[in-house]
Design a binder for these strands. Structure first.
Length: 650
DNA sequence: GTTTCGGTTCTTTTT
DNA sequence: GAACCGAAAC
């Protein structure tokens, strides 16, 4: 029956979904298996709450990516109308950022704090190791130290214990590592900067130290919904618990089978233990799968049955049969790529648009031969690479200029910018920075002259061109127009720099042009810089989808494909040692996480799933390594697959 | 003392 | 690619 808003819930949802949408207040756990209409359920839940008289301003919707948030807000708007605009939706880090911008002083930060990306973190860490005189072959690399530290924070464990486990057998002084971490904290404070983890850590400690602030937000978020709950870690769960503590109107959605971020501190137990943590939790299960044909679901169900410790549930198929998933053993990675290209052409002939085809893999480097072959065959493709758009070298170079203009004390930006000049390396750059007393504000009289005087002769002419932008800043009113600033920077300096330093210079300049476009959407430089730090490449991709992007095959890691679906899915390197990855098998519970990842991959496919396991891989030194099909394939009954032989290559 | 350049090695997964 | 290292060049 249609309600006053015109939504006929019973007709538009199945009984599983309907029950979850109309759940009473209080804690709710929705176990939503892959392809069962999880997003739909969340959106209708929003509509339902609004209909019950809840102001959208009082609803918080936490998602794993910005893409997911945007999609949901858009669909909710279509369903409910513009009223939902007041709803807070976004990632944990976005929420934390918004809160901290308001209350930074309460935790001894200034509101204009910068957000360090992983590259900045690495630079900072490297400098600390250098300055403390700990640089040594034996000493752990910045990367290693940072990820261990981050893991400790996100799982709320003591660093000492983790260090002991990790380096206990090594002749490394754990005290030295402790000193590095202390110094890392100190320098972030001095820079008025936070890294990704700090956003969460500081929000939680802000709330713990200031109950009155916490209470404001508890009041505000009368209803809280969390998507992909199986991938939240302790810290994120803690944040949610704090916010929900008063009203306990907390609805979490997730699937323990799809928990694939344990290396980042997520634990599928989060979802299993939820009812214990929240007394009186109502539990709903969505298991009717609308996405995939039954043959694909059989493989998915069969594979996850190999994880007996998990909460068993079978995906129920409703679609018609179409044919079994294909399994192929090409000889090499090159043959694998050639086979896929031939198949892509066949699927296109059968009427599948190229946009509905995706190639998935465990790790980025697995897709190398594939990219080469696609380019050679002139099949358009789009890859979500490992490096986030705003973390690419050329983008960071350009943004360092903006960062410095915005925040004259941004040491990392200054050093990066100035080492782009000839004859200026790390030492010279640091000397100049010290000489400027840790601050370069072009508006301060004399500062510009002082900088120029400190530069080596060879660097001066180039810097003078950059310096000329500061004159135009006043004249042309660039303050409110960051796009123009980037434009001038490119024109005066970076275009030429790129030509001289990058082989693929046109591509990089294109990216910078895109930044110019992108910055234009923001009314202030600060707003742009803030947003930039929190954006991932998946989000950027989603922005592009609105435009007239060329139709293309998608290439993606399984992790980045979470929540997405395609008509046709190819899986590369489904070989033991590649998927599951050899490294993960050494870890505790490594195999079961890989199996979940495999499950996620298979359930992305709607009509056709083609898995490939090349037999050999050439190593760098010219040697050959032989591979067998993944254990996730060989442990399943053979009749679930259609075995195909790429005979034409021999 | 510093920068620059060329060779070598290594790639799990990311908010 | 890009990070690291050692040696040449400034």
């Amino acid at each position: 029956m249609a309600t006053e808003s015109g939504i006929d819930y019973a007709a538009e949802l199945n009984s599983e979904q309907l029950a979850a949408v109309q759940a009473p207040d209080g804690p709710v756990l929705v176990i939503a298996a892959a392809g069962t209409g999880k997003t739909r359920t969340l959106i209708y839940r929003v509509a339902y709450l609004v209909e019950q008289g809840i102001n959208p301003n009082n609803i918080l919707l936490l998602t794993f990516t910005n893409r997911a948030a945007n999609e949901m807000l858009e669909r909710a708007r279509d369903l409910v109308g513009p009223a939902v605009s007041g709803l807070w939706g976004g990632t944990f880090h976005h929420l934390a950022n918004r809160i901290l911008r308001r209350h930074a002083e309460a935790i001894d930060y200034r509101v204009d704090f910068t957000i360090l990306d992983s590259d900045d973190q690495k630079t900072l860490m490297r400098n600390i190791i250098l300055d403390l005189g700990l640089k040594d072959k034996q000493f752990p690399k910045p990367d290693v130290l940072l990820s261990l530290y981050s893991f400790a924070l996100n799982t709320e464990q003591e660093v000492e214990g983790l260090l002991q486990d990790r380096f206990g057998d090594h002749p490394i002084s754990l005290e030295d590592i402790g000193r590095v971490y202390d110094e890392y904290e100190r320098r972030k404070g001095a820079l008025n900067a936070m890294d990704f983890d700090d956003l969460l850590v500081n929000t939680v400690s802000l709330f713990r130290k200031n109950p009155s602030i916490l209470e404001q937000y508890q009041e505000r978020f009368y209803h809280i919904m969390v998507d992909e709950y199986q991938d939240t870690n302790y810290l994120q769960a803690e944040l949610v618990d704090l916010l929900a503590a008063k009203h306990k109107n907390l609805l979490v959605v997730g699937d323990d089978f799809q928990s694939i971020y344990s290396w980042r501190g997520a634990n599928y137990r989060n979802i299993i233990d939820f009812p214990d943590k929240y007394e009186g939790t109502t539990i709903f299960k969505l298991v009717t799968n609308y996405r995939s044909v039954p043959e694909i679901l059989e493989v998915a169900n069969g594979c996850i049955a190999g994880n007996p410790e998990q909460f068993q549930k079978e995906l129920k198929a409703v679609r018609e049969m179409m044919g079994k998933p294909t399994f192929v053993e090409p000889r090499s990675g090159d043959d694998q790529a050639k086979f896929i290209i031939q198949k892509i052409r066949e699927f296109q002939r059968d009427g599948y648009p190229i946009n509905n085809i995706c190639i998935l893999y465990r790790a980025h480097f697995h897709a190398m031969e594939m990219q080469i072959q696609l380019a050679r065959e002139r099949i358009p493709y789009q890859i979500t690479s490992g490096v986030r758009f705003f973390e690419q070298v050329h983008i960071k170079d350009v943004c360092s200029f903006l960062r410095l203009m915005h925040n004259p004390g941004d040491e990392l930006a200054f050093l990066r910018l100035i080492t782009l000049l000839p004859k200026v390396g790390p030492k010279t750059a640091l000397k100049i920075w010290r000489n400027l007393e840790g601050r370069f504000d072009f508006k301060t009289p004399g500062a510009r002259e002082k900088l120029i005087a400190g530069l080596p002769k060879g660097a001066q002419p180039l810097w003078q061109r950059i310096d000329s932008i500061f004159d135009r800043y006043e004249q042309d009113g660039l303050a409110g127009n960051p796009s123009e600033v980037v434009h001038y920077f490119l024109e005066e300096f970076y275009d030429q720099y790129a030509v001289e330093n990058f082989e693929n210079y046109p591509r990089r300049i294109e990216d910078v042009q895109e930044v110019i476009q992108y910055v234009g959407q923001f009314n202030s430089l600060g707003a742009f810089l803030e947003e930039m730090a929190l954006l991932t490449n998946i989000d950027k991709e989603a922005e592009n989808l609105g435009g007239a992007e060329e139709a293309s095959v998608k290439l993606s890691t399984v992790h980045q494909a979470k929540g997405l679906e395609w008509d046709v899915v190819f899986m590369l390197w489904v070989s033991d040692g590649m998927f599951p990855s050899g490294r993960s098998l050494d870890e505790e519970e490594g195999e079961s996480e890989e199996r979940r990842l495999f499950y996620v991959a298979t359930t992305r496919a709607k009509d056709h799933l083609i898995m490939l396991s090349p037999q050999v891989r050439r190593q760098r030194d010219g040697g050959m390594v032989f591979y067998s099909p993944s254990r996730f394939i060989s442990e399943l009954p053979e009749e679930l697959f259609q075995i195909e032989k790429p005979a034409y290559f021999y």
